[in-house]
Design a protein around this nucleic acid. Structure first.
Lengths: 128, 128
DNA sequence: GCTTGACCTTGTAGTAACTACAGGGTCTAG
DNA sequence: CTAGACCCTGTAGTTACTACAAGGTCAAGC
């Protein structure tokens, strides 16, 4: 399978696949005689592993640790659990932060009344 | 007031102040004979405006639009309201996205049972 | 045989929003 | 007169890609 097909199957841009290979997240593709990258099922699995992890919000470093764990012959669940737990906490604090923002924004918005005023109270509030 | 004092008063790194000036968010500082930047209350107000906006999650482009609106002699509340409304929607969709992640992560974590297993089911699930 | 077009290659530069130097100048206190 | 705190500029690094530019490869059609 060439890179275009892998890209289509995994719904991941070609550039991203090359990028993951370059930074060592994805195992190196085998090269054909003409220099084209050649992929098999194993590569597809790894790419999907990465994409799923990214979709769950893991950053590159965390994905790397996950793939390292996954590469072990008997992945230690305790290590994965720890990574997962830390990440869930990070996600939860982001949610809290965003909710805090959202409430502050809604309070600000409420001062706009009908949004028809001039000399906006929101601007005044932000100026302090 | 020199940059260090402004930095301390606004709890904002010196580099960030210089950066905001460079990208044109913060009005240019007056320069003393020795080349040092000199700030007054007006600058402090603007910096705090920017910092408050950033703390509410507005990005640089949005902050720029906010400061542009704020610079008007009679800021149009309707425009501010629109910006605010769009931003609140962005924040809300980020919250939804993160909650979706969090639920998926918790479901994954639940498969870990006590986190003592080898041959981790989480890895298996991510591999698909 | 030749060209067209889809596909592939590399490498570099751009994005957001800063942060971290390196290499230097200025000023005040001891 | 020197040590230390402060200031200056400019450049490079960060994250996680994305977007070219400039070129090579290959199959199909004329």
């Amino acid at each position: 399978m060439r890179i275009g097909q892998l890209s289509a199957e995994c719904d991941c841009p070609v550039e991203t696949i090359r990028y993951y290979e370059k930074i060592g997240l994805l195992p190196q593709a085998v090269r054909r005689a003409n220099g084209y990258r050649s992929y098999d099922e194993m590569h597809r699995k790894w790419l999907q592993f990465i994409l799923r992890s990214r979709a769950l919000g893991f950053n590159q470093d965390e994905v790397r640790r996950l793939t390292d764990l996954a590469h072990q012959q008997r992945p230690a669940c305790a290590d994965v659990y720890k990574l997962l737990d830390e990440h869930i906490n990070n996600v939860l604090s982001k949610v809290r932060e965003l909710k805090r923002m959202q409430q502050a924004l809604s309070r600000l918005q409420a001062q706009c009344h009908d949004g028809t005023l001039h000399d906006c109270p929101v601007i005044d509030e932000l100026m302090g």
